[in-house]
Amino acid sequence: MAKTILTVDDSTSIRQMVAFTLKGAGYEVIEAVDGQDALEKANHHRVNLVLTDINMPRMDGLKLLELLRELNHYKTIPILMLTTESGDEMKAKGRAAGATGWLVKPFDPKRLLEVIAKVIN
């Protein structure tokens, strides 16, 4: 059975590119436009991995990360940050909040799939 990935980004262009990459590798993809939307979808779907942007309206990716880690199902599943942010301070915040990994945009599709394959199991 295909694993399901929740991808969260307020940019339609990024969501399209990420979804195209993941679907091409055989994953089921659920898209969310911001943290709030992602939280609602995370509660209604069985997700195996979350891939989220940070800078988004309504709820940013770090807040989403914190709230997901409070939910039973999301305590241990991989949550990757895919962001333009590359500063150490921001990374430290992500790490402290329970991020599994940090990918700085622009993403390399091959590398993204390698990282996902490594952590999703």
């Binding site: 992500g94 991020a99 599994t100 990994g101 990918l103 622009p106 590398r111 490594k118």
Partner: peptide, 8 residues
Amino acid sequence: AGGEVELF
């Protein structure tokens, strides 16, 4: 066109 990757 690929940024850095770090696994925690």
